[in-house]
Simulated scan of single mutants.
Amino acid sequence: MATSTPLLKTDGVGIEFGGLKALSGINIELNMGELVGLIGPNGAGKTTFFNLLTGVYEPTEGTIMLENEKLNGLPPYKITRKGISRTFQNIRLFGELSVLDNVKVAYHSLARHSILSSIFRLPSHFSGEKEIEEKAIEFLKIFKLEHVMHEKAKNLPYGQQRRLEIARALAAHPKLLLLDEPAAGMNPQETQELMNLIAFIREKFHLTILLIEHDMSLVMGICERIYVLDHGQLIAHGTPEEIRNNPKVIEAYLGEEVS
């Protein structure tokens, strides 16, 4: 269940590219344990916002706070270590690596054995590698992928590739999981299975989740609150019912003024 303790807070966040404002004045607050949606028409700035949260871009205005710690200017790997993981609109697995190795890669960012122990093949290297592999296999069991652990990631069906990408993101032990259009390309049955999976992982891993999605049945079905972006600015925020009936949101999606 969500609490009133803020996990993530953005204050007036924005970014310019060549003098053009892609995002401006974005104020978003996420509480621990919440499942929140971020929606808007194509080009509204949703993925750009995710790139700001994860250090791919640095804001040109405003601040990003995770548990009262400023993230502005930190590189992506440090932000991952502090507790933010993401998936991508276009799946970005290591296609030539096995399913198992894709998950192990995420665990290596948290590995306790040193680089020197790996270079010199010390006992701590082998014990650390064994621990990582055992944990990765446990993750694959949770996501029902253990039977394909030695397959190349690129050979998996689309739905399984999506599950693997989420599993890899969770292997970094995030506090906040960012899902960028996880239902893209899925049929209705796969979308329903994804909804169930998101609800399951939220409860099992006690996660806060921010979800970008164009499938409104998914967003309205699982999100507690929804933020709406249009042309780089927030135009609405509320419960699914409030967003569904908001004239500004209807206008943004239909491209016409609602009387």
Rank of each mutant, 00 (worst) to 15 (best):
I15E: 01
G18D: 11
K21S: 14
A22W: 04
L23E: 02
L23R: 05
G25A: 13
L30I: 00
N31C: 13
E34I: 01
G37S: 02
I39K: 00
G40E: 07
T47E: 06
T48I: 05
F50S: 05
F50A: 05
N51H: 11
L52H: 12
T54D: 14
Y57R: 13
T60G: 07
L71K: 02
N72E: 12
L74S: 07
F94N: 03
L97T: 04
V103Q: 00
V103P: 00
A111H: 06
S114E: 10
L116R: 11
S117N: 14
L122Q: 15
G128S: 05
E131H: 08
E134V: 06
A136W: 01
I137S: 02
F139D: 07
F143W: 10
G159W: 06
A169W: 00
L170C: 09
K175V: 07
L176D: 01
L177H: 03
L177R: 00
D180L: 00
M186H: 07
P188Y: 04
A199V: 04
A199P: 03
I201C: 02
T208K: 02
H214D: 15
H231G: 05
I235D: 03
I243H: 01
I250C: 12
A252V: 10
L254I: 14
E256T: 09
E256D: 04
